[in-house]
Simulated assay, not measured.
Amino acid sequence: MITKEATEAAPTPVSVPTEAEHRPRKGKYRAWDDAPRWQIYLPLSIYLVFTLIPFYWILLFALRPAGSTSLVPWPITFEHFEKVWTERSFATYFQNSLLVGVATLLMTTLVALAGGYALARFDFKVKRAFMLALLCSQFVPGALLLVPLFEIFAELQMINSLTSVIIAETVFQLPLSMILISNFIKNVPYTLEEAAWVDGCNRFTAFRIVVLPLLRPGLIAVGSFAFVHSWNHFLFALMFLNNQSKQTIPVGLNTLMSADSVDLGALAAGGIIAAVPVVLVFAFIQKWLITGFSAGAVKG
């Protein structure tokens, strides 16, 4: 006779998993690590080929001699680069674009830093309406701003001046930059500033010593975005700059194309010259750029 005490003392039976339970799941539930390698590398290889072909085509036209139809740039020549740099005034275009890009970067970062701090740390009555206006301004294309900006700059006698392009680029970049920096500042604990105030710092000193060093990824992200956009922007430079000595690289590339013919070698060389600074910028700041955009894209 089995007593109650013997039943409670008996060990609990352990279920042995069947072969079906050991078998890995298939279909959409299958782990990515169990997939064959060709399923991973084949799509990536196809994407890489389609991405690199245009770059190779540009290098091909820029490095092979004029009139050549070879699919390999041999013998390599730099005559197209010398032509656009000297005869087509690309040295001047490069300097103008660099000046516009750096000035836009500095002005956008400084103004967005001040505005973003106000949005992140202060509460005022029209704050929600102001944020809504900033967001709605992102839906306005830059082409709609050309006529009013041209009239304003004409009244101020700033047409054919790089200052007009810098101001227009800064105004166009400020809404998004201010939103990103304000969200990034929200991720910085407010108690850090309060601790600095207790130690005798005023608001500006506490921001400069405590908060500003923590904003480096966000500032790099905003500044690089402003620089690249102003470097590549075509409309403002075309509309506000009439003198060839004041034009930027995008407008200079447009001068290489006419209604009758296109100098493909010079155009390809000019495109490489225009792309090199942007590639170098992203190559050096990609770590901070990804961190800044990811931190500024979410609410803290």
Results as ranks from 00 to 15, higher is better:
Phe150Val: 11
Ala118Gly: 14
Phe122Tyr: 15
Cys201Asp: 01
Leu215Ser: 07
Phe172Met: 11
Ala283Ile: 08
Val84Ala: 09
Asn187Ile: 06
Ser70Ala: 01
Gly271Lys: 09
Arg203Ala: 13
Val279Ser: 04
Met158Gly: 04
Glu169Arg: 05
Thr12Gln: 00
Val298Phe: 15
Tyr93Arg: 11
Pro13Asn: 03
Ala259Lys: 15
Gly296Ile: 15
Ala120Tyr: 14
Thr170Met: 07
Gln39His: 10
Ala274Gln: 10
Met131Trp: 05
Thr86Leu: 13
Leu149Ile: 06
Leu44Val: 06
Gly270Thr: 09
Gly27Leu: 07
Phe204Leu: 14
Pro43Gln: 08
Gly271Arg: 09
Glu82Asn: 13
Glu155Ala: 13
Leu256Cys: 11
Phe284Arg: 06
Phe61Asn: 13
Tyr29Trp: 06
Phe139Ser: 12
Leu113Met: 09
Asp199Asn: 02
Tyr190Leu: 05
Pro36Tyr: 03
Phe227Met: 14
Lys125Trp: 14
Phe81Cys: 01
Ala168Asp: 05
Ala118Cys: 09
Gly200Cys: 00
Thr69Glu: 02
Leu264His: 12
Leu145Cys: 01
Ile209Phe: 03
Phe124Val: 12
Ala114Tyr: 05
Val102Met: 02
Arg216Phe: 05
Arg25Pro: 02
Val211Ser: 15
Asn243Ala: 15
Lys299Trp: 07
Gln138Ala: 10
Leu212Arg: 04
Asp263Asn: 15
Glu8His: 01
Asn96Leu: 08
Leu174His: 05
Phe234Ala: 15
Ala103Pro: 00
Thr255Ile: 09
Ala35Asp: 00
Thr86Trp: 13
Thr191Leu: 05
Ser15Phe: 10
Val298Trp: 12
Ala297Gly: 13
Pro17Met: 08
Val84Tyr: 08
Ala66Leu: 03
Thr255Asp: 07
Gln157Tyr: 06
Ser182Ala: 13
Glu21Leu: 10
Lys125Pro: 02
Asn187Phe: 06
Gly27Val: 02
Val262Thr: 15
Asn243Cys: 12
Ser182Glu: 12
Val188Ser: 00
Arg23Tyr: 05
